[in-house]
Design a protein around this nucleic acid. Structure first.
Length: 125
RNA sequence: UCACCUUAUCGCCGUGUGUUGAACUUGUUUCAGCGUCUUUUUCUUUUUUAGCUGAAAAGUUAAAUCAAAAAAGAUCCCAAAUCAAAGUUUGGGGCAAGGAGGAAAGUCCGGACACCAUAGCACAGUAUAGCGGGUAACACCCGUCAUCCACUUUUGGUGGAUAGGACCAGUGCAACAGAAAGAAUGUACAGGUAAUGCUGUAGUGAAAUCAGGUAAACUCUAUGCGGUGCAACGCCACGUAAACCAGCUUUUGAGGGUUGUGCGCCCAAUGUUGGAGGGUAGGCGGUUUGAUCCCGAUAGUAAUAUCGCGACUAGAUAGAUGAUAAGGACAUUCGUUUCGACGAGGAAACAGAAUCCGGCUUAUGAUCUG
């Protein structure tokens, strides 16, 4: 599959986000945490994904933008790991660290999280 | 004044992918013109560079570039919806050209735009303050005067600063000295009177009886100021209750609302008719062509204005404008040096549009000039 990340794959609905944070499960590999939830939506994609950085830890918009870009890029490059799910999911990646990360760090952490997700949710069924 | 650049791979966002006419076999067909883009050729012309001739002006040759002409090619592919047809719309894929700032920041001033009588009027309140000009407007900008400060080649010049209207409207305040700094009294000497600080001089002080200072003191004068902000506001979809809005009918103006006060204005309940409210931060418009930018001319000391030619320059909405790798360049460090350079190492400032403009302030890396 192509390593794209377009509008349809982004998590935008307020409703979905509220449901995700109140009912979702999470996988954590510091400094990145994934919150996910089984869901269903109209668009023809398997997973809708969002990213988030706390304003408390990063006061400047430039830094938050940079981290969100790194998270999106890491997910985009590695989303083939979770491509063959049977259900639809919503994802939210949270960056909880306090230092500006390198790309190699975020990529390896997200890879690990996605592999763990596959083990927990897909393989047993 | 500028705000690193190039290449490769993988991505994100919106935009464009035309238009006119004809034909019959009426097909989502065929053909032609125009436009746009690409490539090639030709010729003249514009500009640049290099060579040659020449004292120079210039001429000439070659290459690149711009314009023109001609030729060839491209101007698309797939799917769905609608439709009598022409066609139209939507989605996907190609292809093409674009895609953060000088402060995008602070939200401190000024506007545009939008809505609201809970928006009006008066008072109150508040902002500005030499003079003249600019502007849509300003607390901004330009010019100029005065005062102060600094420098200097000294009575002139240069640079900088200024909460620089009015204390003959009224009220208040004033260290030390002084009898006394306006409502109270008086020292010495001299003069004068019916009598009295009534008058002069001395004395204190920056200022002492037709006085003066102070308005980042009240105040006065002139001018301006309603409020809320694009999550404004308008339209559409889903959808309907006893909630909301409008009109009419009957009754009462008690009470409540408004930044303060007064006036004004608005608000209630019953019945009935009509409309659709809330919610989903739903979709579309507002939303990027504008007090816009570039160059030139004219007017003006200047800020700026007018005219002409050309350009189209981000529009996201959990919020695009990126990630990775390699190389180069600037500053700088070290070593070598034949002072021309060479080699090695090697930071990347402040910082991210959110309705849009004009300023101010703050943050910050270089470079040039005074």
């Amino acid at each position: 599959m192509k390593a794209t990340f377009n509008k349809k794959e982004k998590l935008k609905s307020k409703k979905e986000l509220d449901a995700l944070f109140s009912e979702g499960k999470s996988i954590s590999k510091y400094p990145i945490r994934l919150v996910y939830r089984r869901s269903s939506f109209e668009e023809n994609v398997k997973i809708k994904t969002g990213v988030s950085v706390s304003k408390r830890n990063f006061k400047k918009a430039v830094e938050r933008n940079r981290i969100k870009r790194l998270l999106r890029e890491s997910y985009r490059k590695n989303k083939y790991i979770v491509a063959n799910t049977t259900h639809q999911f919503t994802f939210m990646f949270l960056y909880s660290g306090k230092e500006m990360p390198e790309y190699s760090l975020t990529e390896s952490k997200i890879k690990g999280i996605l592999q763990k997700f596959v083990k927990q949710e897909i393989e047993p069924k």
